[in-house]
Design a binder for these strands. Sequence first.
DNA 1: GTCTATAATGAGATAGAC
DNA 2: GTCTATCTCATTATAGAC
Lengths: 215, 215
Amino acid sequence: MTALQAPKYKRKRAPSQRSLATRQRIFNAAEQVFADKGFDGATIRDIADLADEPVGSVHHHGGGKENLFHQTVARRAETLASARMNALQNARNKGALTLEGVLSAFVRPLFDFALTDPRWRSYARLVAFVSTDKRWQDISARHFDPAAQVFLKEIIELLPQASRPWITESFVYFVSATLALMTSQERMMSLGAKPSSEADQIAHMVRFSAAGMRA
Amino acid sequence: MTALQAPKYKRKRAPSQRSLATRQRIFNAAEQVFADKGFDGATIRDIADLADEPVGSVHHHGGGKENLFHQTVARRAETLASARMNALQNARNKGALTLEGVLSAFVRPLFDFALTDPRWRSYARLVAFVSTDKRWQDISARHFDPAAQVFLKEIIELLPQASRPWITESFVYFVSATLALMTSQERMMSLGAKPSSEADQIAHMVRFSAAGMRA
DNA sequence: GTCTATAATGAGATAGAC
DNA sequence: GTCTATCTCATTATAGAC
């Protein structure tokens, strides 16, 4: 139940186009509902309604609520990890790496994706849920930690005078600020900030975190 | 249902000692269970079991799940807000305010309380839940924003050259780092940090945030 | 105020016709 | 693969004896 479900032993034949389409609609709906209400707050029925599918269909494709959740997170994880690694490589190619460059490479892909596909915005909130709930630590470790480790290593090289725990703790604060950026727009406004443009906010957050790490 | 329940119109007589005691045990249990599992994940039965009280009793004292949640958050909110204001005043009395001093005054009371009463540790996690879930924005605005506004104003005076949105956004990152400090111990370890002492971590976090704000 | 029993609802999951 | 109907269980909430 903690492992991702193994592929079916032998698939008799390839899934039909229609099957793939409903499958996608179900996962899109699951992504949005889980992002909006969290795992416990979401119900299979919410998802079924949003996908405009019968409840049984959600079970069929998802294999149960928990499994559906796993798969929903996993679906875009690889894409995100690759994009982050690519961004890091691009930053390297442009000359000497800076701390800001590394942090940007970690953050930007998520927001760039969201610009063209709003579904990535839901996925980002979903990532926030997974990252903050101890219950999903396994998922987090499997899908997000590997990339985090690479970035962490890069930061350590850029800050040779800083201690290892300092950098790790700082990195966690950086990630939490990233999640806050994705989820706390209302909170900022309730504290009286006129909303800056998102691009500005990202730049701010990166600057904030980089300065914090160098302290 | 969004407002805190009004005090009973006319209480016939004062609650007995025994009643007050069970009431406290119920709220202590609610605090812990809500902090561990969140609002949706928690059940009245979990709370009743932990308090060693019958389910009906939890309903009687709590007035329904949502009301119980509100009250549980409210119970310590005033104490926390006052302690923060006192800490700020103490910092002022010690001489010129520094940014680090202001941030410490905001963060430390929560951890100081937790040192002598572990229940405050649950409450801290509860605050994290409330602060990150849009659904509880009202509670957050009522109980935590007033103090936040005071601290925000102080920070604005200390950083006259910084823009208002910059400071607000930075403050949100600071708060998110505070919450991460309270909830992400495991995450830091899974990223390979040996745990620093809590006092060190708090000092780190304050230094990180102050440097970020000044950037 | 306390506690037992029970109502009423909504949840996840499954069986089986198509 | 799809979809309807149903099962089973856990939940919140309440009624009413003590």
